[in-house]
Amino acid sequence: MGLIDDLKGKAKGLIHGNEQAIKDGINKAGDFVDTKTGGKYAGHVDKIQNGASKLVDKNGTPDQAPASEQAPPVNPVPPVNPVPPVDKAP
């Protein structure tokens, strides 16, 4: 399942920081369907809009600032080698 996991990771990366824009697109698409069908399927469209918005919330990180506003990660301290190298002179 490497391909599926890779696609999931890429999708989450695209969602992160763009949550509101994606939700706005979901709402516009639902409104478009409602206008084209005369509201005949409005209940179904609303359920799909709510589910898609929840999916965006679940896979994005709405509690964090977008990546452009976050501080870059701090480089970790390299591990210290507790055992000195052994000199193997013949």
Rank of each mutant, 00 (worst) to 15 (best):
K58Y: 00
A71P: 03
K36T: 06
D31Q: 13
P78Y: 00
I26Y: 04
L14P: 07
L14W: 10
M1A: 12
T35Y: 10
G25S: 10
A42P: 07
P79L: 14
A11H: 06
Q70H: 01
K23F: 05
D46N: 09
K8M: 13
G25K: 10
N59C: 11
A67Q: 12
K8E: 08
K23G: 02
Q70V: 01
V45N: 01
N27S: 10
P66S: 12
D34T: 11
N81H: 11
E69Q: 00
N81E: 06
T61F: 10
T37Q: 05
G30W: 06
H16M: 14
V74H: 05
A71N: 06
I15A: 10
I4S: 11
P62C: 09
F32G: 11
P73I: 09
P85M: 03
K54R: 14
K88E: 09
P90G: 14
K8S: 09
I22Y: 05
K28V: 03
I22G: 01
V77C: 13
T37L: 06
G38K: 11
Q70Y: 03
P90K: 12
P66Q: 04
G2M: 04
D63V: 13
Q64Y: 03
P73D: 06
I4Y: 02
A65K: 06
D5V: 12
K12N: 13
V56T: 07
V86N: 10
P85Y: 08
V45R: 08
G30F: 04
N50G: 14
G39Q: 11
P66R: 06
V83K: 04
P79K: 15
D34V: 12
A29S: 00
V86P: 02
N75S: 15
T37I: 10
P82S: 12
A52M: 10
G39W: 01
S53K: 14
K58A: 11
P76N: 01
I22N: 03
Q20D: 10
K58E: 09
A11L: 15
M1R: 00
A21L: 11
K58G: 00
I48C: 09
V77F: 14
G17T: 13
D57C: 02
D87W: 12
I48Y: 00
E69D: 01
N27D: 11
N75M: 15
T37K: 02
G51T: 04
A67R: 13
E19F: 05
Q20K: 14
T35G: 08
S53V: 00
I15M: 06
K8V: 04
D57T: 03
V45Y: 11
D46W: 02
A89H: 15
N59W: 01
D34K: 14
A89W: 13
Q64K: 12
Y41I: 08
I22C: 07
A29N: 04
D63R: 02
G51Q: 01
P85N: 04
K47V: 00
K12S: 04
T61V: 07
V74I: 13
S53M: 08
K23P: 01
P84Q: 10
N50A: 15
K10D: 02
P73A: 07
P78R: 04
L7P: 06
N59R: 02
K40P: 05
Q49E: 07
V45K: 02
Q20R: 12
